[in-house]
Design a protein around this nucleic acid. Structure first.
Lengths: 241, 241
DNA sequence: GCAGTCAGTAAACGGTGTTCACCACCGTTC
DNA sequence: GAACGGTGGTGAACACCGTTTACTGACTGC
């Protein structure tokens, strides 16, 4: 980015090298194989040198998470962009399918980012979303929100008990979206929309996680039809224009 | 169980002691604290002695998982039993709420059992369900199936593309249930029921996992109303008698 | 009483994260 | 140009870890 001096450029270079190496080790041999000494070995340096770049192994893993999230976002974004603006439903389907495909193709990255207990990577709970976890989701959803009007079907309106909670979330969403540079008109962030986003993220996450881990309650050799039917169900609940 | 000789009884005793200690370490300090040496220290023995009981640390962790699952089942079962048979919907709600409550009260156990990559505990993917993962779910669901008739609302019937897949699952379900001693009449295992079980398990799992990890895309201080609204949504999709 | 089984030990190997003292270089400043 | 401070890197060390091996010693079944 803004590495002005020569020193800063060198530092940023090896920092990238470290992350790339950690990533390779993760993908090839699992997260247990991404060890400081292994990384150091491959870079031709010694393990303590890595402490010039990261406070600890947990800190490094956290940065690997962010790195992966950035890549995931970079993978998803062009795929939605390829779908015409006038087919909002198809845009949602596309990003959901792309997320599932990415997860199945990158099970170890998915596991690290989306199914590692916060204490393992020492991640503070409810960490600002733009950092890594919900970042992708928020970005995509925000983009859709800013471009389309969403109609919620009558059958699924917001329970009264939820309105107070949702109103509180809304500000948080606005702030998070603003932080990523996406401006969403206030009136599009209805409570129902927030509600739908939460519910839908939970379903998407649940399905993909179970599929990646092979942990459906009974043998499910191919979960794609299941996934597709979940998408069509979504379509029946929400409308776009 | 069937420890006849004195030796076998002693062995079973220390085996239980090992598991209990591992469990305590897990709960108090997280899964990374569950080390062979720490367990041995607390039991007043040496680490290699543990290899008389388990092949490896991964093997031990797997048994801890099974132990936890058994406890979870033991927690859930009486809670459903407490709800009258003539309120099937309430029975489902009860078990779902109980599962969520258990997960929130035992985050580390939940993480180990439901969100640890199979390679960490060396668990074969799609391991027979009665072992630990879907065991609880299957048991509960099977019990409900054997006691009630389920009506699926017309709006959610099984997509054609899924019928072949689901038919294959059904046999697996029957076998798994039979293995746990629950006999479900053939005609109650309609394809729609299987479909609903899968979809619902994914939702339940997704919500609870996200809540336990504090990983909703934005700050959700109290997800209970969200959970409750999910339950009422379920009720609108399925009917009992 | 004897032989064998089996829980447990001590020692060792190779690996880990992390800390500390030290060193050598590079960019800046007098 | 010489001195200087920051910075990247080293080597040794510490305290762990999982795992293997060879070896005891007690209990069991005959």
């Amino acid at each position: 980015m803004t590495e002005s001096t020569r020193r800063e450029k060198l530092r940023a270079d090896t920092e990238r090298e470290i992350l790339a190496c950690a990533r390779r080790l993760l993908v090839e041999d699992g997260s247990h194989a991404v060890t400081l000494r292994a990384i150091a070995r491959e870079l031709g340096i010694t393990a303590p040198a890595l402490y010039r770049y990261y406070d600890s192994r947990a800190d490094l893993l956290r940065h690997v998470c962010d790195d992966i999230s950035a890549d995931l976002a970079a993978t998803l974004t062009p795929q939605i962009a390829a779908v015409p603006l006038d087919q909002p439903a198809e845009r949602v389907f596309t990003v959901c399918r792309a997320f599932r495909r990415w997860a199945l193709a990158h099970p170890r990255e998915f596991t690290l980012v989306f199914a590692t207990s916060p204490e393992e990577t020492n991640t503070p709970v409810n960490r600002p979303a733009q950092d890594h976890f919900g970042r992708v989701f928020l970005e995509i959803a925000g983009q859709l929100l800013s471009e389309h009007k969403i109609f919620l079907s009558d059958s699924l309106d917001v329970p009264d008990a939820l309105r107070a909670e949702l109103a509180a979330y809304r500000d948080d969403v606005s702030a998070s979206l603003a932080a990523t540079g996406i401006r969403v008109p206030e009136e599009k962030l209805q409570l129902g929309t927030i509600y739908l986003m939460l519910q839908w993220w939970a379903r998407l996450y649940g399905h993909v996680a179970l599929e990646v881990f092979g942990r459906f309650p009974f043998a499910v050799p191919d979960a794609e039809p299941l996934f597709e039917s979940m998408l069509t169900e979504l379509a029946s609940v929400v409308g776009f224009s």
